[in-house]
Structure formats: C-alpha cells, structure tokens
C-alpha cells in the first residue's frame, strides 16, 4: 500500500542571524506513515517539527532529499487536493467572519457555492462554532481560532490532515475539544499527522509516534512497543510500621519516602513484589496501596534528549 507520507533523506539547512550562519534544521529524516495512521510527531521546541511540516506542505524547500504524499512529490500541486493543514498558532484574516473564511478556503479548491454551503454547515457543526460562525475572526478566542483552523483544514475532505501543534496555548476545555475532533477524524480512517511537545496529547490520540530531537529522528514506533518493554516501577504505600521493621524492607526498595502516617516504598523489579508483600504481611504492616508505574512517553522523551546531549 502506498504510504500516506514517505520522507526520504530529508535535510534542511537554514541560514539565520546577522552573519547568515548555516544551521541544520533537519538532518537526513526518513519516515514512512501508512494510510489511516494517527501519527504523533514529538519533540521539544526547535527540534525540527515545524520545519518538517513546512517541507511537507510546500511552504519551504528541502536542501536535499524528498517527501512524497500518497506516492507523489510534495511539489506536485495536485497532491494538495488531498491535504488539510492547520499551522501552528494559526492566524487568519481577522476581518472575515468564520463562514466567510471557510467559503474563501472552499473557493481555493474550486468548490461550487452549493458544495461549499453544504460542507461548511457540517464543519461548523463539527467544530462547535454554530453561534459564532457569523462573527469576525478578530472576535474569536484562541480556542475558537484553532477550531475554525481545523474546519478550514477539512474543507476539502482531505485524506491526510497535517496539524502543527494543534493543542498549544489552549485551556483544558479547548484541548479536549480539539482532541475530540482529531479522534473523530481518526475514527473516519483519515491519516492524521500532528506535531506536539505535549506528550499526554500524543498518548491519547496516536497509533504511532516519532521522536525528533535537534533536527534528527531518534525513534519511531507504535506507542505500545515504545512504552511496554521499559515499564514497571511499583510504589507500595504502607502504614503502621515501626522504624525497626522498616529497616527489614528498606534494602528491597530502590527508594523510600515518608508519606502520610507511613512510607512509600518504590521497587524497580516487579519480581520481588511477592516477597515484599509476604514480609509486610508477616510484620502485620497495613498496605494502603500498590501502584504500578508504566514508563511514560515523557521518560522516553527525556532519555532520548539526554542520550543526544551526552
């Protein structure tokens, strides 16, 4: 099956600063994303996420390498009939109303007025802007702009939706609304490629993630594989234990900290949990809770960055 996005040895050097020093913004990026995937492109600020997206959407040109969308080079303008794009911190013509802006976008695709009317009514409904659609965009909040941005990205019923930091700067309510829309698109079988530096967003939405640090891709994979092998530290909270009894358990734990009326023991090896629990029971210690901690995307993320820096 033709990948939705195929990136081959994509490299971008940018000249910046007063002396026009050359900076490597993206280095030999290779990536293949099958259709129907929700792909999270993760990385800290300045890692090269937006650079990649700009190369995919034809806003800038690679120094070397190429990017294909549904098998065709991004420079082929017809490819863009299949793409929907929401830029980072989007800013639209603030003198237009939401509906006017969507009509404008529809016209850029050569849609007839009837087709636009039909589509826009649906989209306004989807992004929950029915009451505000007639107002000028300058009166929109950040969250509303983001949602009208999503609507414009979907005007052509795209097969691939590229979203650059779609949740940045939004309050929890706004994040949820945007997340729900993305999940809705995913449910429709669309390919969603979105960048974020907020890992929980990716965890909730993505099938696959790619981690990019300082312009180069560190790891790619589905979330389960990236997370599962490294999971498990366990926190055992206990109560009613004497200092002397504590010294019996302490060597088994990787760390011990004082909590409300008791202690929290952290063990890194799940294998020793039964032994610890037996010992606790024998000493008649009250077990308050046992919480396993899976490794989060955040841990992987920090590890990659640390590895890169060292």
């Amino acid at each position: 099956m033709t990948p939705a996005i195929e990136i081959k040895h994509l490299t971008k050097k940018i000249r910046s600063g007063f002396l026009m020093k050359e900076v490597m913004a993206l280095s030999d990026l290779n990536l293949s994303i099958p259709p129907g995937t929700a792909f999270g492109f993760l990385g800290p600020n300045g890692a090269g996420k937006t650079t990649t997206i700009k190369l995919l959407t034809g806003l800038s040109f690679p120094t070397s390498g190429e990017a294909l969308i549904f098998g065709r080079p991004v420079s082929d303008i017809s490819v863009r009939m299949k793409i929907g794009f929401l830029p980072e911190r989007p800013y639209f013509y603030d003198y237009l109303s939401g509906t006017e802006y969507l009509h404008f976008c529809g016209e850029l695709f050569g849609m007839t007025r009837a087709a636009r009317n039909k589509k826009i009514t649906k989209l306004i409904e989807l992004v929950g802007l029915k009451e505000k659609a007639g107002e000028q965009l300058r009166k929109y909040s950040k969250g509303m702009l983001q949602r009208i941005g999503l609507a414009q990205a979907l005007i052509n019923d795209p097969e691939l939706i590229i979203l650059d930091e779609p949740m940045s700067g939004l309050d929890p309510m706004g994040r949820k609304q945007v997340r729900d829309i993305i999940l809705h698109l995913k449910g429709q079988g669309k390919t969603v490629f979105f960048s974020t530096h907020v890992l929980s967003d990716a965890e909730m939405i993505c099938d696959q993630v790619g981690i990019i640090v300082q312009g180069s891709l560190q790891s790619v994979g589905d979330l389960e594989t990236l997370l599962s092998p490294k999971t498990c530290s366990i926190e055992v909270s206990i109560k009613g234990v004497s200092e002397s009894a504590l010294s019996l358990f302490k060597p088994m734990a990787s760390s011990t900290k004082i909590a409300d009326e008791g202690y929290v023991l952290r063990i890194d090896d799940a294998g020793i949990l039964p032994k610890l629990l037996a010992l606790l029971q024998a000493e008649k210690v009250q077990i308050v809770s046992i919480i396993p901690h899976r490794e989060t995307l955040e841990d992987i993320f920090m590890e990659e960055i640390r590895g890169r820096q060292s």
């Binding site: 806003l59 793409i83 794009f85 830029p87 989007p90 850029l108």
Partner: peptide, 14 residues
C-alpha cells in the same frame, strides 16, 4: 508576516 499565507499555500494554490 502574519502567516495567513501558510494555510493558503498548503492548498492547491500556485
């Protein structure tokens, strides 16, 4: 400057 051109050029607009 205001980047209103970004969503435009990502559409089939030469």
């Amino acid at each position: 400057e205001k980047r209103t051109i970004h969503p435009l050029l990502a559409k089939p607009v030469r």
